[in-house]
Amino acid sequence: MVSEVWYLLRKDLLLELRRMHHLNGMLLFVLGTVFMCFLSFQPGLEPEKWNALFWIIQLFAAVHATGHSFSGEHPNRHIYYYSIASPGAILLSKTIYNFILLFITGMGSYGVFWLLLGSPVSNVPGFIVTIVIAALGFSSILTLVAAIAWRSEHHFSLMAILSFPVMYPFMIALIKTSLIWVGNGGAQSLPGLMLLLILISFLALALAFILFPYLWKE
């Protein structure tokens, strides 16, 4: 199982390193969106709005990035994977790959935000930890949704429709958590919120692990 995950993950990462199409696409997407915000919010942004905007753009980027998890490859190759690896390994490798991709995108978009819209973040290490947890949650929830959307015929339009409602609990807790590190900070208790985020992520991952085999088989 572990070796299967490792081989599949290495294959995805090598392909990505060679072509760089996902990562470059994501960074361009973020750059374009943030530049649009820079043009729209001319007198600058208050910390609360900066925070909300940052995570909403992250969500859009994540939906965009994970949407290609399964549909990016040729159907014949899926049959090949089906014959050599267990569905759980495929799901885990895709989730880890998305996690890495989303973490880099998150850091990149923080950089772009910092350049264009300023950075009201008062505690940078804390904010980076939040980016890591966000990448974990986004990847574990959205990989399964991507698989569902890929199985239905119109995957691109369905991805956003299916993923936004299931993202609400994670997003609302994420924005509250991140607000502690941004600006003056909220009054919420930090350990509880962090625990909640990690709990949602792992619950989603466990559910995905159980449910994915039903999507995978033809």
Binding site: L144, V145, I148, P165, V166, Y168, P169, A204, L207, L211
Partner: peptide, 11 residues
Amino acid sequence: SAVYNIFAYVM
């Protein structure tokens, strides 16, 4: 849709 139903219900 059963897969989505279960996942969405938990969320």
